[in-house]
């Protein structure tokens, strides 16, 4: 389980995150919702320890990181790629083909055992047709799938997805949902950042243990499960949902 408490992050005088609490359980999906600029990506970077918070604590399977810290070279490495992230802008390495992008992080020996796994992922993501191209030679949706495949191949225990549905079509999104639920049953903890309300609703409805937090200006203004999502008490989430 990942349990983050009191996460605060500032950029100059912008309060990007204001005392955020969030939990990610193995075998569960936690959704992070919120308008643009509400701090969703900042939260992902803080929780994955890529850009450490100014204050708060993050407990990853009883490995506890508290901030602020005076430890200069904290051993974060042990948490990656057990915890891995697919970023909003996918961040594929531009000088490598998609296939090389997927293979680079895999240890050679491991890969021998994983060849089947690799081919299965490539097929289930419909990537066979463009796997040998460079990132700048494929569409955004294809890049997002490649980035997701790169992360899934690492067999993570925690998978954070930042807005990866933005360029996927309905079909791809539904394949993604199936895949996520399959991953979930293999006991992965998943955090999904999205602004697609429908997508969020499908995920919350599929399993009543899945939960969400709704961020606004760096604060969690609503959290809960499908019940709270359907009957939000906060004015802000009501307003956000009413636009639909």
């Amino acid at each position: 389980m990942i349990e983050a408490k009191g996460i605060i992050k500032r950029f100059g005088n912008i309060q990007a995150l204001d005392t955020v609490n969030v939990t990610i359980k193995k075998g569960g999906i936690t959704l992070v919702l919120g308008p643009s600029g509400s701090g969703k990506t900042t939260l992902v970077k803080s929780l994955s320890l890529l850009d450490c918070p100014d204050s708060g604590s993050i407990n990853i399977d009883d490995l506890i990181f508290t901030f602020p810290t005076n430890k200069k070279n904290w051993d974060f490495k042990s948490i990656w790629p057990k915890l891995t992230v697919v970023f909003q802008q996918h961040f594929l390495w531009p000088h490598l083909t998609l296939k090389e992008n997927l293979l680079l992080p895999l240890q050679k020996k491991k890969f021998q055992d994983n060849n089947k796994h690799f081919n299965r992922i490539i097929e289930s993501f419909n990537m066979t047709g463009f796997i040998d191209r460079y990132p700048n030679q494929v569409s955004l949706g294809q890049r997002q799938r490649a980035a997701l495949a790169r992360a899934v191949l690492l067999n993570p225990e925690y998978l954070f997805l930042d807005e990866i549905t933005s360029a996927l079509d309905v079909e791809q999104t539904s394949i993604l949902i199936d895949l996520l639920f399959e991953l979930r049953t293999s006991n992965i903890g998943i955090l999904i950042v999205t602004h697609l309300i429908h997508f969020a609703q499908v995920i919350l409805e599929k399993n009543e243990n899945n939960s969400f937090i709704f961020l606004d200006e760096g604060k969690v203004v609503e959290s809960g499960k499908i019940v709270e999502f359907k009957n939000p008490h906060s004015v802000r989430l009501n307003k956000y949902l009413s636009v639909l």
Binding site: W80, P81, K82, F87, F91, H95, L154
Partner: peptide
């Protein structure tokens, strides 16, 4: 961001340097 991606993929510092930073910077 390319370093971020390398970190969360669990690449070591030297692998990140030789496989990602060095070729991209050289180019």
């Amino acid at each position: 961001q390319y370093i971020f991606a390398a970190k969360v993929c669990g690449l070591s510092k030297s692998k990140t340097f030789f496989s990602i930073q060095f070729p991209l910077i050289t180019r």
